[in-house]
Design a protein around this nucleic acid. Structure first.
Ligand SMILES: [Mn+2]
Ligand SMILES: [Mn+2]
Ligand SMILES: [Zn+2]
Ligand SMILES: [Zn+2]
Lengths: 150, 150
DNA sequence: TTCTCTATTGTAAAAAGTTACAATAAAATT
DNA sequence: AATTTTATTGTAACTTTTTACAATAGAGAA
């Protein structure tokens, strides 16, 4: 497991500690990759650290998020997923077919600029999923609208 | 309670029904106003309809949201709140002092345009809270940074 | 190594949220 | 008014998430 050394230093620098539980959770996040729900993380991390408790899992996800090592993302309704933080990024997801895409970095930067200009706040990008229609599904919806009207 | 008549028609038009449970929940949302958590809604709606169950509450919030009568919003971590839908809008909230502001309509429209241009998706605004620093707290953070450096 | 300090974890109970299924009650039909 | 239909609710069990508190175990000091 090579998750470790730079994270250990980053934790120690702020007075925190590395533990086998945290290692297992970080390893699950890294090795699976992408967006993982707490239940998925528990399943994967338990293979490395079988006694991992749910309380520790949730506390650790909260800890990692508040300290910038992981990021939460809300997937519609009430589901929350987590991923390791690399750079801040947003996704767009099609609410019809589910296909998703990374928002280009320049686009995201511009979004934050416009929000900051419009409000006077220094707005932070965080980690988000936008919903809408992909171009294929836009055409599909147009066709079915025409059918209804015609 | 004057919540009623136009909503009753809107429901009937789509084959749904108005019930005392839904009335109580809608009344709680309207009379309290702003962002309310499910627990807060249950507390308020129970004063009007004492036997309201949790299952019905959550089902109704989901129903109202999916049909455009209410909107969910994620408040950082994992808390979700609801409010009655008027127009689509976003908020910015200061992560230091908690003060919040409505994002101007033009700003929000521009954000969606930029996201749509940048991704090819027809991105929808939904209902969101952005986090950042208000102008007062930006100055405050600058001052404390200078103190640390100097 | 041993001791001390306290960040972190496990335990167990509570709270929040979800689900399947039978019972209820709006609305339409007779 | 009685009957039928089915959208909606209550019940109860279940899963997920949070919390309080005592026990554990990193990390530094002795
Ligand atoms: Mn992501
Ligand atoms: Mn709002
Ligand atoms: Zn699509
Ligand atoms: Zn502020």
């Amino acid at each position: 497991m090579t998750c470790g050394s730079y994270l250990i230093d980053a934790l120690h620098a702020r007075g925190f500690r590395m533990t086998p539980q945290r290692m297992a959770i970080l390893h699950a996040l890294r090795s699976v990759g992408g967006h993982l729900t707490p239940t998925e993380i528990l399943l994967n991390a338990s293979r490395i650290y079988p006694n991992l408790t749910k309380a520790t899992l949730y506390r650790t996800l909260d800890f990692l998020t508040r300290n910038g090592f992981a990021a939460a993302v809300h997937l519609g309704d009430s589901r929350v997923a987590y991923e390791l933080v690399q750079e801040q990024h947003h996704h767009v997801m099609c609410r019809r077919c589910g296909r998703s895409l990374l928002v280009p970095e320049g686009t995201l930067r511009k979004v934050c600029e416009i929000l900051s200009e419009g409000t006077g706040y220094a707005v932070e990008a965080d980690h988000r999923v936008w919903f809408g229609l992909c171009s294929a599904c836009q055409s599909a919806e147009r066709r079915s609208d025409e059918k209804l009207a015609g």
